[in-house]
């Protein structure tokens, strides 16, 4: 560990605000990108699954009518 104490680590030799701002925004953006990509795929799969299920119900109903 380069820093003497945890407070020193947070202070970053007086540049704490800028260093933690940079790292904070980076990790925020990466989390949004990864999470968003996973969410997008999950959302689409659920939507498609519902569509397929509805189509099958309609088909079943039509077969009963005949």
């Amino acid at each position: 560990m380069y820093f003497e104490s945890f407070n020193d680590f947070l202070a970053m030799g007086g540049y704490g605000f800028f260093v933690w701002l940079a790292f904070g925004i980076t990790y925020l953006l990466l989390i949004v990108l990864i999470g968003g990509s996973i969410y997008q795929q999950r959302q689409f799969k659920q939507q498609l699954k519902a569509t397929i299920a509805r189509e099958q119900r309609v088909k079943q109903y039509q077969e009963q009518q005949v």
Binding site: M1, Y2, F3, F9, M12, G13, G14, Y15, F18, V19, A22, F23, T26
Partner: peptide, 28 residues
Amino acid sequence: GNIWGIAFTPADYQQGDSYRIIHIHVPA
């Protein structure tokens, strides 16, 4: 890479600890 860069490397002789931003700036 980031934890090593931000906590276990020495400070820059001119820029002090502000240079640690390099560990995300340059890769990105």
